[in-house]
């Protein structure tokens, strides 16, 4: 694709991005680099600063400090050029509820100055692509959450943006709509579009993103590929479930250093999850005559990364407020 060749290798670059509302520091100097044609996920708990980051990168609000380049243009000096290159689908539905789906898309086509022939053609194409043909003339007020979200993204795509910001694109969607949205995002990437995505769903970041940054308390606490992040946390474990507290007690004495959960009557024994170590574990349990109700092998996932990286920091943030 020629358009891709012309795009800069770095779609987004931010250095020392800062933002505060009064005394509340929302972004405390974050650095980001997003390569063109990749999916970058900004992962973090509620209130971490994800939406603020998207709002700054998409020119909606200004930063207090730092340097940002989007699509090769300086955010502060050339906001118009940045706006021409990006598309934004925010967390809050950005559709006109009093208009129909078709009218919403036409509005975008007119504002992008697509012209009398190209505009309707593009609108028809997007209605088709986003499975909105049947609902095209119905008022958006009657749409389900999933339909609204699809229309929202379709409106973002009217101008064929090279960089798309998606702020929690699947929040509040049912599992099926979520999968549809993931499919749409993969299609976009296949066509060379750069995606900057925020999410609090680790599975989403794991499945879609080339690189993930974990944002917590206004700082990037970890950054890398999904696999690199998983390596940051201690290895996996085997989870043993017991019928009663007595069995749990005996097992806890047998496996010193394992994490016990008295409420769930479970014990987490560190393990690489391999067959050999599993057999040794079972032999030890047999040897001590401990009866186990259930067993599951857990390999580290992004949940572990998320919890181990963000939990301690949220206390600091509360204190700062």
């Amino acid at each position: 694709m020629t358009a891709l060749a012309a795009a800069p290798a770095r779609a987004i670059r931010a250095v020392g991005l800062r933002k505060a509302y009064g005394k509340l520091v929302v972004l405390d100097g974050i650095d980001l680099v997003v390569a063109a044609g990749t999916v970058f996920a900004l992962l973090g708990p509620n209130g971490a600063g994800k939406t603020t980051t998207v709002n700054i990168l998409s020119t909606l609000i200004s930063a207090d400090g730092g340097q940002v380049e989007v699509a090769g243009h300086d955010l502060e000096r050339e906001p118009g050029a940045v706006r021409a290159a990006i598309g934004v689908t925010g967390q809050f539905s950005a559709v006109d509820a009093l208009l129909s789906a078709e009218e919403n898309l036409r509005l975008m086509a007119d504002l992008r100055h697509l012209g009398r022939h190209e505009g309707p053609r593009r609108v028809a194409e997007l209605l088709e692509q986003f499975d909105l043909v049947e609902a095209a003339r119905k008022p958006v007020q009657t749409f389900s959450g999933g339909m609204r979200r699809r229309l929202d993204l379709a409106m973002t795509l009217v101008g064929d943006p090279r960089i798309i910001f998606l702020d929690e694109p699947t929040a509040g969607l049912d599992p099926r709509s979520r999968r549809v949205m993931w499919g749409i995002i993969r299609d976009l990437v296949a066509r060379g579009v750069t995606i900057f995505l925020t999410t609090q769903y680790l599975e989403e970041a794991d499945r879609l993103a080339n690189r993930i940054a974990v944002l917590d308390g206004g700082r990037i606490v970890a950054e890398g590929t999904p696999d690199e992040l998983k390596r940051l946390v201690p290895g996996g474990h085997v989870r043993l479930a017991f019928a009663d507290a007595a069995a749990l007690d005996r097992a806890a004495r047998e496996f010193d250093g394992a994490a016990r959960d008295d409420e769930a009557l479970t014990l987490q024994v560190p393990s690489d999850g391999g067959l050999g170590s599993l057999r040794r574990l079972l032999d030890r349990l047999d040897g001590a005559a401990i009866k186990v109700n259930g067993l599951s092998v857990q390999t580290p996932d992004l949940d572990d990364v998320f919890l181990s990286l963000t939990s301690a920091d949220s206390d600091r943030k509360v204190a700062a407020r």
Partner: peptide, 12 residues
């Protein structure tokens, strides 16, 4: 409505 935020991020 969110659409005004959208307008603010568009080249219009």
């Amino acid at each position: 409505e969110g659409i005004v935020s959208r307008f603010r991020t568009m080249p219009i």
